[in-house]
């Protein structure tokens, strides 16, 4: 944005700030609620500034009684969710980069058929095929396992398509130069394709990690035991129907805790993430 006048800059900032407030306020309010005692929360109005209970609340949520969420502490839930988000992100990237590699660089019978089969699955979200997938998982005895939690979510048409589009932009001469340099299919993949895909992989990792972290319906179906469930489901289970029984201050703390890991991933990978989205130089 070169040559923007000062006035337009001010207007742009006002719009951005309003947008920020709309997005940030609920999160801020969650934070505020996580720093007050249950009594303060239940007695409206809720204060707009953080309260004095911050250390107590967080200490209790992190190190307090074990049986807080159906007999499981928050560390187990965070661990489960991390396993799930990481496996989905890494698994999806591995599967889709390999399938895109096969589809773009190899000539085999029914190549385009396979491509279209993958493409068609884009139109079927997890929710649509959830009953048959669930039935398969039950028959395989994968309920309450990490495998059952992650495997069905790994195949990804979106990521395959993304890698395919990127691979198609790699100049033919580069592939030929590698062939003349004696790089076989595996070496070409490892030495040339992977390093060139670094930024794409980073961007995808961020997106997929958050996708895995925020899964709700699938872990809800797949886990019966409380020690196998994720933090999102844990949050849900902490809220009981009778409002007075719900430990709202701890719910708020847990919600804050659930937000932190995705934020860290975004922060750490931001540089790569942005580059992956905008980079055009090959």
């Amino acid at each position: 944005m070169i040559g923007l006048s000062r006035r337009r800059g001010v207007i742009a900032h006002i719009v951005l700030i309003i947008g920020m407030l709309v997005v940030a306020f609920p999160i801020y309010y969650t934070f505020v609620a996580s720093t007050h005692s249950l009594q303060t929360i239940l007695r409206p109005p809720l204060p707009l500034l953080p309260g004095p209970e911050i250390f107590n609340n967080y200490y209790e949520a992190l190190f307090g009684g074990i049986g807080r969420i159906g007999g499981v502490n928050v560390w187990t839930l965070l661990f489960n969710t991390t396993v799930m988000a990481l496996s989905i992100a890494v698994g999806k990237i591995i599967i889709s980069i390999l399938s895109a590699y096969a589809i773009v660089f190899f000539r085999f019978p029914f190549r385009m058929t396979f491509f279209w089969l993958i493409f068609i699955t884009l139109m079927l979200p997890v929710e649509v095929r959830i009953m048959p997938t669930y039935a398969v998982m039950v028959n395989l005895g994968l309920i309450d396992t990490y495998t059952g939690l992650t495997l069905p979510l790994m195949a990804s048409a979106t990521a395959t398509l993304l890698f395919r589009q990127f691979f198609l932009t790699i100049p033919g001469e580069l592939i030929e130069a590698a062939r003349i340099d004696g790089a076989g299919p595996w070496r070409f993949f490892k030495d040339i394709l992977m390093p060139l895909s670094r930024t794409n992989i980073a961007a995808l990792f961020v997106i997929l990690f958050i996708y895995g972290w925020t899964q709700y319906l699938w872990p809800l179906l797949m886990t019966n035991r409380n020690d196998m469930t994720t933090i999102v489901i844990g949050l849900k289970k902490m809220i009981s129907f009778a409002d007075a029984d719900t430990q709202w201050h701890l719910v708020m703390v847990t919600a804050m805790l659930a937000i932190i890991p995705p934020i860290l991933v975004v922060l750490f990978m931001q540089r790569w993430f942005v580059r992956g989205l905008i980079e055009t130089e090959k």
Binding site: P171, E173, L174, E176, A177, A178, R179, I180, D181, G182, A183, D191, I192, P195, L196, R198, E281, K282
Partner: peptide
């Protein structure tokens, strides 16, 4: 195959490996 022919080729767009 091209690698076993003991040839070397110089391409029009150089085809250098951009990350190396």
């Amino acid at each position: 195959g091209p690698a076993e022919r003991d040839i070397a080729m110089v391409f029009q767009n150089y085809a250098l490996y951009p990350h190396m």
